[in-house]
């Protein structure tokens, strides 16, 4: 469960010291581009299904230890799928079932 009452939220990190900056770049992977595309398609529609503010809020509601350990587009897809379920666009059971199918097919 997210710790809503933690006063300084995990993402709000300005002024902390999270180590030296490594000025690196990796080539974005296809699945990452797809996550980005899903988000843009949902937020650009006239009947906006998910806004960028909701995406961020969903990221901020991830458990702090998860926020700290998963990558950028991993945070995105966690938030996005949670919000789509929250809004009833997707059903949790059907989403879980689809993930299991994909895992089984590996």
């Amino acid at each position: 469960m997210p710790d809503y009452d933690n006063i300084r939220q995990q993402h709000d990190m300005g002024g902390l010291d999270k180590g030296p900056v490594v000025p690196s770049a990796h080539e974005i992977e296809l699945w990452e581009k797809q996550v980005e595309a899903i988000m843009r398609l949902l937020s650009m529609r006239k009947d906006r299904i998910v806004t960028v503010d909701e995406l961020r809020r969903g990221i901020e509601e991830l458990p702090p230890e998860l926020y700290d350990t998963i990558g950028y587009y991993e945070r995105w897809i966690m938030s996005l799928s949670n919000i789509l379920v929250e809004k009833g666009v997707l059903d949790r059971a059907e989403l879980d079932a689809r993930v299991q199918e994909l895992e089984a097919a590996e």
């Binding site: 809503y4 009452d5 006063i7 300084r8 709000d12 300005g14 961020r56 809020r57 509601e61």
Partner: peptide, 15 residues
């Protein structure tokens, strides 16, 4: 102000 509960704030803590 340091709101708690479900929230989405764009005012950084440090400022």
């Amino acid at each position: 102000r340091f709101p708690t509960g479900r929230r989405h704030l764009r005012t950084p803590f440090y400022i």
